[in-house]
Every structure is written in structure tokens, then in C-alpha cells.
Simulated assay, not measured.
Amino acid sequence: MKELRLVCILALLGFLIGCSSSSNDDDEMLPPYNNNNEALIAAQNYFNGSLKPIIDSKCVTCHEGKHNKNDAFNFGVFNNARNSADNMYNQVNSGKMPKDAGKLPQSEIDKFKEFMDLVDKI
């Protein structure tokens, strides 16, 4: 009986150590926002040059004053836009956003799609 308890305790300990180690490995797999890889740089450049002007002219008017710079819904900030690229594309493609303004021209919707595709490569 003592031997069975010891085996169970050792197995549980091994499991807990394995879970802890696995968690750290997962964190290392996520690319940091300041990573200098080509995909990240391409997404940032595209955001700043092609998408941010649309967001500034079509989105900020409704969101201004409701969100601060650290708010996840302030899509004029690259990291927030990056984290919400799929949702932003889906919203503008469906015509749900910009709210009460009519659907964006297809050329602008295509820019949200291109940004989403670039983010997916990071």
C-alpha cells in the first residue's frame, strides 16, 4: 500500500512539473510585438501606410472619446488592430461597421483583408 501511494505521488509530481514546463514552452512560441521578423514589419508597414488612414477617417469619429490608447477597441493602435484583424475584416465586410455609415467601398474592405492576411503570417 505504501508503495502504491509513493508511485501515485511521484506520478502526480511528474505531471505537475511537466505541465509547468509545457506552459513556458508555449509562451516562448508566441512572437513578441517588437520582434523584427519580416512578416511583422510587413504588417506594421501596411497598417501605417494603407489601413490606418481608413481607420482614422472612418472609425475614429465614432470611437473618439470612448476609448483610450490602451483600450483594445482603439484600432488606430497597431497591436490592437493586429489582435482584432479577423474581427475588423468581418465587421467591415459584412457592412456592420462603420455603424450607420453604409458599407465601405470594396477597395477599402480589401485593405482590411490584406492586413488580416499579413497578420496571419506573423
Score class of each variant (00 low, 15 high):
residue 68 N to E: 12
residue 116 M to K: 15
residue 69 K to S: 07
residue 38 E to H: 08
residue 101 A to V: 13
residue 49 G to K: 06
residue 63 H to R: 06
residue 95 G to A: 06
residue 78 F to C: 00
residue 86 D to A: 15
residue 12 L to C: 12
residue 110 D to L: 04
residue 12 L to Q: 03
residue 97 M to N: 14
residue 25 D to Q: 13
residue 106 Q to Y: 15
residue 59 C to E: 04
residue 85 A to W: 07
residue 21 S to F: 15
residue 68 N to R: 06
residue 80 N to V: 01
residue 104 L to I: 10
residue 64 E to I: 04
residue 28 E to T: 03
residue 8 C to D: 13
residue 99 K to W: 14
residue 19 C to F: 09
residue 79 N to T: 15
residue 90 N to S: 14
residue 82 R to Q: 04
residue 101 A to F: 06
residue 39 A to T: 03
residue 78 F to H: 02
residue 13 L to N: 02
residue 11 A to F: 05
residue 84 S to Y: 04
residue 92 V to D: 02
residue 1 M to D: 03
residue 2 K to S: 05
residue 37 N to H: 09
residue 11 A to M: 04
residue 82 R to V: 10
residue 5 R to H: 12
residue 29 M to R: 09
residue 42 A to C: 10
residue 51 L to F: 00
residue 11 A to P: 02
residue 48 N to L: 08
residue 30 L to K: 07
residue 69 K to M: 13
residue 65 G to T: 01
residue 71 D to E: 02
residue 73 F to L: 09
residue 66 K to V: 02
residue 37 N to C: 12
residue 26 D to S: 11
residue 95 G to T: 06
residue 16 L to N: 12
residue 115 F to R: 08
residue 79 N to D: 13
residue 111 K to D: 00
residue 111 K to L: 11
residue 106 Q to P: 07
residue 37 N to G: 00
residue 104 L to A: 11
residue 31 P to W: 13
residue 115 F to W: 01
residue 13 L to P: 05
residue 112 F to Q: 03
residue 60 V to S: 00
residue 27 D to Y: 05
residue 119 V to E: 02
residue 58 K to G: 09
residue 112 F to T: 00
residue 106 Q to E: 07
residue 60 V to N: 05
residue 107 S to M: 14
residue 50 S to L: 04
residue 71 D to R: 04
residue 5 R to A: 15
residue 121 K to V: 00
residue 93 N to C: 12
residue 103 K to M: 07
residue 109 I to M: 06
residue 46 Y to C: 10
residue 90 N to H: 10
residue 85 A to I: 11
residue 55 I to L: 11
residue 49 G to V: 11
residue 67 H to Q: 04
residue 78 F to D: 01
residue 13 L to Q: 02
residue 95 G to H: 05
residue 44 Q to G: 01
residue 39 A to D: 04
residue 95 G to W: 05
residue 6 L to M: 11
residue 24 N to K: 12
residue 1 M to A: 08
residue 21 S to N: 10
residue 57 S to T: 13
residue 72 A to Q: 11
residue 37 N to T: 07
residue 96 K to Q: 14
